[in-house]
């Protein structure tokens, strides 16, 4: 990929609008809210989420199903179905420009060259009736106006880059002719085709076997280093996070309950939920372990309990937790947690 090697600063290649990150700051999400208006009521999927993403940084957003982690990714990409989704407040700034207030056609041109995404289910994300090479080439033709044969040539090089064996022979193959791991590689190739500055990976390996998962994560890591992309890794797997991410944000019921450097978070979690999660997973390198489980279930997003949303499941909860909602605050330098007793938890 000689053509893209030098473009470490992101810029729009077709419309002339250029995006330049200031001090490497790519993405700024500020106090974001997302609601789903359903016939049964309003579900608050994201409830005031803020974070930054810099060049070459990888941020993991960790959460269980219903925590709002995928909705966050979709809100950044601008692919939420609205309605039923509504964004009642917040900003998503890419290189200083607010994506939410941008006209739709300008925003559409950011998808691909600036911000790009990989999905969990590669089979349903690829169009089954077109050859994979054609689908990758289409990215170059659409966004860069490259002619057909050059685009196909670039697609082949990209397939080689994501280590698809015999790429030149398989460029005309259809998605169903590839294995799950190979399809995910094709998805990655499409996502990085236009050299985005930000790559969002939404559970990229959840559907894959563990040996294939290791291959894909290694590839993603390598590509990120090589291109200095900002990577947002959405996952529920504490193991994957530990292997890849620099920073981690733990999400619960639509808010960040903890945000920290990965090493620090794993060694001393500052929120009871994070702590409970770490204690509830069986570890491959331990035997005779007694699993401790977090009791109960995450709350219904239409009826998030007052006070701290985690309080019904928290063994440390006191009256104040049922009354006052704790804000995400800096407990010790660089460590943020939304818990009234964060100091106590971090030192426990």
């Amino acid at each position: 990929m000689t053509t893209t090697q030098d473009t470490t600063t992101p810029s729009d290649k077709t419309s002339g609008v250029t995006y330049t990150p200031e001090d490497g700051l790519l993405l700024e999400v500020e106090d974001l809210y997302v609601e789903f208006h359903t016939p049964d009521g309003i579900a608050t999927a994201i409830n005031g989420v803020s974070f930054d993403l810099h060049q070459g940084e990888s941020l993991a957003i960790l959460g269980e199903s219903g925590s709002g982690k995928s909705v966050t990714a979709q809100a950044i990409m601008g692919i939420l179905d609205m309605p039923p989704a509504v964004i009642p407040g917040g900003h998503i700034r890419y290189c200083g420009q607010d994506l939410l207030s941008m006209p739709e056609d300008q925003r559409r041109r950011t998808r691909g060259p600036e911000v790009s995404m990989i999905f969990q289910d590669a089979l349903s994300s690829l169009n089954p009736v077109f050859p994979v090479g054609w689908q990758i080439a289409e990215m170059f033709r659409m966004h860069r106006g490259v002619n057909k044969s050059d685009a196909l040539e670039q697609a082949i090089r990209l397939m080689e880059r994501v280590q698809i064996p015999a790429a030149r022979d398989r460029v005309k193959a259809y998605p169903h002719q590839f294995s799950g791991g190979m399809r995910q590689r094709i998805m990655i190739a499409m996502a990085i085709a236009l050299d985005p500055a930000v790559l969002i990976a939404d559970e990229p390996t959840t559907a894959l076997d563990v040996t294939v998962q290791a291959q894909i994560m290694a590839l993603l890591d390598e590509l990120q280093q090589e291109r200095q992309m900002g990577l947002i890794l959405i996952t529920h797997d504490l193991g994957v996070v530990a292997d890849v991410a620099d920073r981690i944000a733990v999400m619960y019921a639509g808010r960040f309950v903890e945000k920290a450097d990965v090493v620090e978070l794993y060694s001393a979690p500052a929120h009871p939920y994070t702590r409970g999660l770490l204690e509830s997973i069986p570890r491959l390198d331990q035997k005779g372990q007694t699993l401790a489980a977090i009791g109960g279930l995450p709350p219904n997003l239409m009826r998030i309990p007052p006070g701290c949303p985690f309080n019904p499941r928290c063994r440390r909860a006191e009256d104040v937790c049922r009354r006052d909602r704790p804000e995400l605050r800096e407990v010790v330098p660089g460590r943020f947690a939304a818990c009234h007793f964060a100091e106590e938890v971090i030192n426990a």
Partner: peptide
């Protein structure tokens, strides 16, 4: 994808609804 988003919301629904 948006199906997934809605599903994520609705999956949580019956938990307390019941």
């Amino acid at each position: 994808m948006t199906d997934a988003a809605v599903a994520e919301v609705t999956v949580a629904e019956p938990r307390e609804g019941g």
